[in-house]
C-alpha cells in the first residue's frame, strides 16, 4: 500500500496536472513537468545516427549514462529494465565484428502504438514514441509487437525515482530519447556520454542539421527496413 502511495506521490510531483496529461498526452506530458511549455513541434522529427565504425566493443558508457539519467538500476537480470543495450554482432559469412547500441528506434509507424489497447503508447508530433505511465495497464502487447525488443516491463516496486522520468511498477517503459532534456534544448544522455561521438542526435527534418546532411551524404541503414516502420534511429557501417 505504502509503495503505491510513494509511486503516486512521485507521479504527482512530476505532472503538474494529471488532467493535462489525460487530455493531450502528446503535447503536455513532459513539458508541464518543467513549467516551461515549449510544445513539441510537428515540423521536427528527432532522430539519431549511430556510427558503428567508431563504437568500441566492451564500451558501455551510453548504457551507464542512460541508467543514471533515468533512474534505472543497471541490473541485467531478465526482469530488469534496459532501455539501451550494447549488441555485439559478428557477420556470419565474413566474420567481421561490429558493436552498437540499440534502443527504441522511435518508429514513424510504431507497431507498439498500433497494438496498445489504451492509447498509453503514443507518438509525439516530433516523432518521439512514449508510454503514458498513468494509462498503461501492463498488458505487454507492445513488447510482443516491437521488432527491436526495445521495451521493458517494470517487474518490481520502484524506489528513488528521478522526478523528471516517471516510472511505475506494472507498466511498460522504453527509451524516451531523453524527452525531458530535449524539451529543455538538450540532447539524450547517451549521445552526450559517448566518448567516441558515435551517437549523433538531431532533427531529421531540418535540411541544415548535421544529422540530415550526413544522412544525405553517407550510406546508412534502418534496422529491419523490410518492416517499413521508418525508424528515427539510423545506423552506419552495418
Amino acid at each position: 500500500m505504502s509503495e503505491i502511495d510513494t509511486q503516486r506521490r512521485n507521479f504527482l510531483k512530476t505532472s503538474a496536472g494529471a488532467a493535462a496529461v489525460l487530455i493531450a498526452p502528446g503535447f503536455m506530458l513532459f513539458d508541464i513537468a518543467h513549467g516551461k511549455p515549449q510544445g513539441a513541434s510537428n515540423k521536427v522529427r528527432w532522430g539519431m545516427l549511430i556510427d558503428t565504425a567508431k563504437c568500441k566493443s566492451g564500451c558501455n558508457d551510453c548504457v551507464t549514462a542512460c541508467n543514471r539519467e533515468n533512474g534505472l538500476s543497471g541490473g541485467t537480470a531478465a526482469t530488469d529494465s534496459q532501455w539501451i543495450r550494447k549488441i555485439e554482432l559478428k557477420d556470419i559469412s565474413s566474420g567481421r565484428e561490429v558493436s552498437l547500441p540499440m534502443m527504441c528506434q522511435h518508429c514513424e509507424n510504431p507497431p507498439c502504438v498500433d497494438v496498445c489497447p489504451t492509447n498509453a503508447s503514443f507518438k509525439r508530433v516530433d516523432g518521439i514514441v512514449l508510454v503514458d505511465k498513468h494509462r498503461c495497464i501492463g498488458c505487454r502487447y507492445c513488447m510482443m509487437a516491437c521488432p527491436y525488443k526495445a521495451r521493458s516491463f517494470v517487474h518490481e516496486p520502484l524506489h528513488d525515482q528521478n522526478p523528471d522520468v516517471p516510472r511505475g511498477r506494472g507498466t511498460v517503459e522504453s527509451c524516451t530519447l531523453c524527452v525531458h532534456r530535449i524539451d529543455q534544448g538538450g540532447k539524450p544522455a547517451c549521445a552526450e556520454a559517448c566518448p567516441n561521438n558515435v551517437i549523433l542526435f538531431g532533427d531529421l527534418n531540418d535540411a541544415d542539421s548535421e544529422i540530415a546532411k550526413k544522412l544525405r551524404s553517407l550510406s546508412s541503414v534502418q534496422i529491419r527496413a523490410d518492416l517499413h516502420l521508418n525508424p528515427g534511429v539510423r545506423y552506419q557501417g552495418i
Partner: peptide
Amino acid sequence: DLGRPDRVIVAATNYNPTSVFAWNV
C-alpha cells in the same frame, strides 16, 4: 495478469481503434 489490473477501466474508456486487443475487448 495485467501489470495494473486496477486500471482495467482505462481499457474501457480509452479505446484505441487500431489495437487488436481493444477489438477483442
